[in-house]
């Protein structure tokens, strides 16, 4: 692989460009200076730590470390998806639903990709496994966050219609059909839209990276197509799983609608 390695001076020059942000902040009194410094520092620190962790895991080539890191990534994806929810279930259910569906879907697709399709030697080679897993998790996380949020918002706004159906003797699944459909649609749309725009509006990050690292463009494109399909499959599986588990949680053994299982939000109006 032939690529130009970056020196610390090169990074310093790039970092100084953030000066443009600072000038904008001062000129237009945006008051984002503090936030800017924090965000930029966070970016450097987080990436730096990630780099060190990856160097360590790559050097060990031990599947156990992969498992540890993978678990950590799943937890974070679940936490992030849960934090994007307006309505949360009580008792960590939202986090558990998100983490388990994202983690399970991404793990199955990752195993398929590594053991059946790409087949690196050994199959758990971190250089393949970790970037793949990260991309699958990130996209599934977005889908699950959207799907769950739509489900819980719609179930609240359509409470009257759903309860009327229940009162008329419909089963819970029947009463929830329209709500579940719109949640699934919202969760799956970003992946489908992204596929349509890929290569025209934006060059995907992974492909760009491979090209920069010296991969031939057509080979990079092949990888991109592979990962895009893997992402689509993971997102679909994760969104369906998350929405169906959440639907289950919204009801009980008498097929009632159980909105009391949401955390009651604190009144935000002050004094």
């Amino acid at each position: 692989m032939n690529y130009v390695t970056l020196g610390w001076i090169d990074l310093a020059i790039a970092a100084s460009l953030i000066f443009i942000h600072g000038v904008a902040s001062i000129l237009f009194h945006l008051g984002i200076g503090r936030q800017l410094v924090i965000s930029a520092t966070r970016m450097c620190l987080q990436l730096g730590i990630t780099g060190l962790v990856l160097r360590f895991v790559f050097s060990q080539n031990n599947p156990l470390w992969l498992l540890v890191l993978g678990t950590f990534m799943v937890m974070f994806a679940g936490y992030e998806a849960a934090s994007r929810q307006q309505n949360r279930f009580t008792g960590k259910w939202t986090f558990s639903i998100a983490a388990s569906s994202i983690g399970l879907a991404a793990s199955i697709i990752l195993l398929l990709a590594l053991m059946v399709i790409v087949k690196p030697e050994p199959w758990y080679t971190p250089r393949y496994a970790l970037p793949f897993f990260g991309m699958l998790l990130g996209n599934a996380m977005t889908g699950v966050a959207l799907g769950l949020d739509t489900l819980t918002r719609t179930v609240k706004s359509e409470r009257l219609a759903i309860e009327t159906k229940l009162a008329l003797g419909h089963t819970f699944n029947d009463a929830m059909r329209q709500t579940v459909r719109s949640a699934l649609r919202t969760g799956l749309m970003p992946t489908i839209n992204a596929m349509a725009a890929t290569g025209l509006v934006s060059l995907p990050g992974m492909m760009t990276g491979q090209i920069l690292a010296g991969t031939k463009p057509v080979e990079a494109v092949k990888y991109q197509i592979l990962i895009t399909f893997l992402i689509a499959a993971t997102t679909a599986a994760a969104v369906i799983m998350a929405v169906l588990i959440a639907r289950y949680r919204l009801s009980d053994n008498r097929q009632r609608l159980r909105l009391d299982r949401f955390v009651v939000k604190q009144d935000k109006t002050r004094g």
Partner: peptide
């Protein structure tokens, strides 16, 4: 009987009904 079976015999009519 299940919830739906019970509610097809026992009909609750809410003051404000839902439509879908």
């Amino acid at each position: 009987c299940t919830g739906p079976q019970w509610r097809s015999m026992v009909r609750y009519l809410a003051p404000e009904a839902g439509f879908w």
